[in-house]
Design a protein around this nucleic acid. Sequence first.
DNA 1: GAAATCTGGTTTCATTTCGAAACCTTATTA
DNA 2: TAATAAGGTTTCGAAATGAAACCAGATTTC
Lengths: 154, 154
Amino acid sequence: MARKRFDDSSCSVARALNEVGDWWSLLIVLQAMYGTRRFVDFQQELGIARNILVDRLCRLVDNDVLRKVDVGEHGPRFEYRLTDKGRDLFPVVIALRQWGDKYNPCPEKPPLDLRDRRTGQPIRQLEVQDAEGNPLSVRDVFVQEDPQDDKKQA
Amino acid sequence: MARKRFDDSSCSVARALNEVGDWWSLLIVLQAMYGTRRFVDFQQELGIARNILVDRLCRLVDNDVLRKVDVGEHGPRFEYRLTDKGRDLFPVVIALRQWGDKYNPCPEKPPLDLRDRRTGQPIRQLEVQDAEGNPLSVRDVFVQEDPQDDKKQA
DNA sequence: GAAATCTGGTTTCATTTCGAAACCTTATTA
DNA sequence: TAATAAGGTTTCGAAATGAAACCAGATTTC
């Protein structure tokens, strides 16, 4: 892909977006979190063009977000399953979902109600927190400059 | 834009990606969180083409993620500032950053060290939690079906 | 055992989008 | 008066996208 890429960027957000920052990749990961595993199912549930889906699945596999597993006992069958790295996108997806629910609720339906399987309770609102668990806003944080200048521990 | 859009999608993640799900929008928001406000600064710091930047800024303004403020006392001057909605993308950005730091660390530099302005301590790792604050993985959650259909308990 | 089907793709091609560079307009400064 | 700055717009070639047709191996159906 010839879009400007950021493989080399010193910003890890940019590098993360490099892997899952296009229109489809994160939706594919989301579908996978819902349990979708097979090519045709991704295709139908997302309504994505097949060639694009191939491209994205390959890229996600290359980036170790998904694993392609041959389950073909009768006929060609493959499954695309989340890796640990892929599952670790859970907070990203949840953060996006909560933001979407807050600012762009669907007028008809209520938002999807995600709950803890164990207790049946809704999950908590994600928030950025300080070391003690107090909520932090954008303005409450700063970037600690490279501590190698002043001799700090490693 | 003629990419498949999801304005109508019942999935709030899809609707969120609709607003900030392209290559540049979230990076613009990130820059804004770092304090960038002016057109030329976004352009130079991100290395984005000017026409694309115009398009994305307009879209972010339309979607109420940024506000365009005329600060032109002498000559044309505008600032693009985060709205509350834009600032609420903070957890999304942090989730992406932490994921990127974990799986795609920059080999040379250490990751950006975000700290709490008040205490100087690093911020906490984001995690999805249940009502009591215990961590939840993808597999620990389920989608509560619309409770009006069947009278189920949790 | 031949035909239709399912799965997981490729290929082709028209339409969009991207990115770079040139240009434009208003206003300020040298 | 000329040069510069800010914030765009225009143009154009290159790349990505999406739809639909095609393909190939294996399998069920008749």
